[in-house]
Design a protein around this nucleic acid. Sequence first.
DNA 1: CCCTGATTCGC
DNA 2: GCGAATCAGG
Length: 221
Amino acid sequence: MKMDWTEDMIAKLRNLWVQNLSTADIGRQLGVTKNAVVGKVHRLGLPPRPSPIKGPAPSRSSVAAKAAAVSKPSAPKASNVTNKASPSADAAPEKTKAKKTKSITPARKTPSKTTSKTTSKAAKAVKSTDGAKKVSAKTTKAPSKARVRKTTKAASPGPAVKKLQKRQPVRPLRSAFQCQWPFGDPGTVEFHFCGRTVITGKPYCVEHVAIAYVKLRERRD
DNA sequence: CCCTGATTCGC
DNA sequence: GCGAATCAGG
C-alpha cells in the first residue's frame, strides 16, 4: 500500500497544522504516524513550529561516521581552503546577494494575539463540540486499540456556560457567516479565508466542513 | 516516562 | 517522496 497523500489529506494536514495541533494528533486523525506528518510537513515547506530540540544536527550519520571512522581513521586535512577562517580579508568577491535569506520562517506570527495554547485549545474545543457530540456514543467503545492518553489535554467541557453578550461586538459581522477555511500561510498577505456561506452552526462552508470535520472516525479500511 | 517536533537515511 | 528510526528538549 503506497502512501497516497491526497489533496484531502494535505488539506487537512495543513489545516490542522496551522491550528497548532500536535503532529501526533494530526497523525491520528489522518491515519498516519506523527513521523509521517512531520516529514510531510517539512517536505511541503509548511512553517515549522518551535521544536523542543535545537542542539546540533543529531544526524544519524554520526553513528555511521563512527563506524566509518574505523575504516577511515585518518582524515586527510585538506588545507583550510574552505571559504572560512581567512585571517587576511581576501577580496571577498561575491557577497552581493548572499544577504537575502529567503527562509520561510521570518515574520510568521500567529494572526491572533492569543497564545498558541489558547488557540489549540479553542481548536480542540471546536472539534469536540462538533464532532465528539455526534460520535460520543461510539467513541466510548473501541478502547482496545489506541489508548486515550489525552489526560493532559482532555478538555473538560464542564458547566462553563458562557452567557451570550447582549451587546454585539464592535464587529459582529465579518466571518460570522463566512467560511473560516484557511488559504495560504497565516501571517502572509496571501492568507485568506474561504469566505463562503457557512453551514449553520459551523465555521466552514459545506465544502470545507466536510474535510475539516470528517474522519473523526477511523479511516482504516 | 511521558510528551513534543526535527533530522537523517533506507526504501 | 515517504516514513521509521533516531535524537533531543520539556
